[in-house]
Amino acid sequence: MTENSVNSPSIFVDGDACPVKDEIIRVAARHNLQVTMVSNQGLRASVGPNIKAILVGPEFDAADNWIAENCRPHDIVITADIQLAARCLKQGAQVIGHNGKPFTPDNIGRALASRELNQYLRESGEISGNNKTFSKKDRASFLQTLENVTQKILREMT
C-alpha cells in the first residue's frame, strides 16, 4: 500500500520522543494503515511503504500544529503531549499516550488541569521534573490499546 484512501484511518505520530514507534509500525502493517511520523528533528528511516516521515520546521509546536491540522475523525494520534491530545480530540481523532492510556473527551480536562498543576509545582521547586521510567508494562499496554482502538475504528467504518 502506498497511499490510503480518504476513508481509511491513518496513524499520526508525534515522533520526536516517541518510544513506541516499532509497535506502531507493527500494528499499522497488520491492518494496512498509513503511518505519518511528524518531527522537527530527524527521524530514523522507517521501513515500509505505508510509513511516511514529515520533517517540519524548528518553530515551537510545528509538529503539533501539523498533526492537529491534518488529523480527522477515525484517525489515531499517538502523543504524550496533553495539549496536542486536546486539539486532536476536537478534530474527532482517537488519541493514545505512549503508555497506552487513551485520551478521551471525558478525561482530557483532568489531564490538562493536572499538567498545569505539575508545571506550576516544578516552576516553584515543589517537585522535580523527572518523569517515571518507561517500562515493558507501558509498552505492552500501549500495544494492546493501539490494537483495540484500531479494531474498533475499522469495525465502525465497515
Rank of each mutant, 00 (worst) to 15 (best):
N40Y: 01
S39N: 06
P58A: 14
S39C: 07
P19A: 13
K52F: 15
V35R: 07
S46H: 12
N40H: 09
V47Q: 11
I25N: 07
V38A: 08
V56E: 06
G48Y: 01
M37S: 05
L55A: 13
I25P: 02
N40W: 00
M37T: 02
I54N: 00
A29L: 04
A53Q: 11
G42Q: 07
R26N: 08
A29P: 01
T36A: 02
V56L: 04
V27E: 01
A45H: 14
E23A: 13
S46V: 13
L55T: 09
M37Q: 04
N32H: 03
R26E: 09
V20H: 12
C18W: 07
G42A: 09
A53H: 11
T36I: 12
I54C: 00
G42P: 02
A17F: 03
I25Y: 09
A29K: 12
A45I: 14
N32G: 06
K21C: 12
A53N: 11
R26M: 09
R30C: 00
L33W: 01
K21D: 13
Q41L: 06
Q41P: 00
E23L: 12
P58T: 12
A29Q: 11
N50D: 12
Q34F: 03
A53Y: 00
H31M: 00
I54E: 03
A28L: 09
M37K: 00
P49F: 14
L43P: 05
L33T: 00
D22Y: 04
V20D: 12
A17L: 10
C18K: 03
N40A: 03
G48L: 05
E23W: 06
V35L: 07
A28H: 02
N32V: 05
H31W: 02
V38H: 05
I51Y: 02
I25V: 14
G42R: 02
G42D: 09
S39K: 01
N32T: 05
K21I: 15
I24M: 08
K52N: 13
A53T: 15
P19D: 12
P49N: 14
P49T: 15
L43W: 06
N50T: 13
M37F: 08
A45K: 15
G57N: 15
A53C: 11
V47F: 10
A17P: 04
Q41F: 04
I24F: 10
V56K: 04
I51K: 13
I54Y: 01
S46C: 13
A45T: 13
V56T: 15
G57P: 09
R44P: 13
V35Y: 12
V56Y: 01
Q41R: 04
A53I: 15
V27L: 05
I51G: 01
M37G: 04
C18Y: 09
A17V: 10
V27F: 01
I25E: 10
A53G: 06
R30H: 05
V35A: 01
V56N: 06
E59S: 10
I25G: 03
R30K: 14
K52E: 13
R26I: 03
G48N: 11
R26V: 04
A29C: 03
E59M: 07
L43C: 07
M37C: 09
K52H: 14
C18G: 10
V27Y: 01
N40S: 06
Q34V: 10
N50W: 05
N40V: 00
I51P: 07
V47R: 08
V35P: 07
T36W: 04
G42N: 08
A45C: 08
V56M: 07
R26F: 03
